[in-house]
Simulated assay, not measured.
Amino acid sequence: MDEKVKELIAIGAAVACNCHPCVKFHTDKARKMNIDQELVKQALDVGKMVRKGAAGQMDELLEKEII
Rank of each mutant, 00 (worst) to 15 (best):
A16N: 08
G12H: 01
A43C: 09
A13H: 05
N34F: 06
C19I: 03
V50P: 05
Q57S: 15
E3G: 03
A43W: 02
V46L: 13
M49T: 12
A10E: 05
G56I: 06
V5A: 12
K64L: 15
D2C: 00
L44Y: 11
E3T: 08
A16V: 02
N34L: 08
V50T: 10
A16C: 08
A54I: 10
K24V: 13
E63H: 14
R51W: 00
K64A: 13
V23W: 02
G12S: 15
G53Q: 10
K24E: 13
L61G: 07
E38H: 03
K48V: 07
M1T: 13
K6P: 02
L8S: 03
A30H: 06
F25G: 04
D2T: 01
K48F: 07
D45W: 00
E65H: 15
K29W: 04
G56D: 15
A54W: 02
L61I: 08
D28Y: 00
I11D: 01
A10P: 02
L39G: 02
G53L: 09
M1H: 10
I9S: 08
L62D: 13
A43Y: 03
Q57G: 08
L8I: 00
R51P: 07
L61R: 04
K64M: 08
V23I: 14
V5Y: 11
L61V: 06
A55S: 12
H26M: 02
G53F: 04
G56S: 09
A13F: 02
D36Q: 11
V15G: 07
V46Y: 05
N34W: 05
I11C: 08
M1P: 12
E7M: 12
K52Y: 04
V15F: 04
D36L: 07
E3K: 05
C22H: 07
G56C: 02
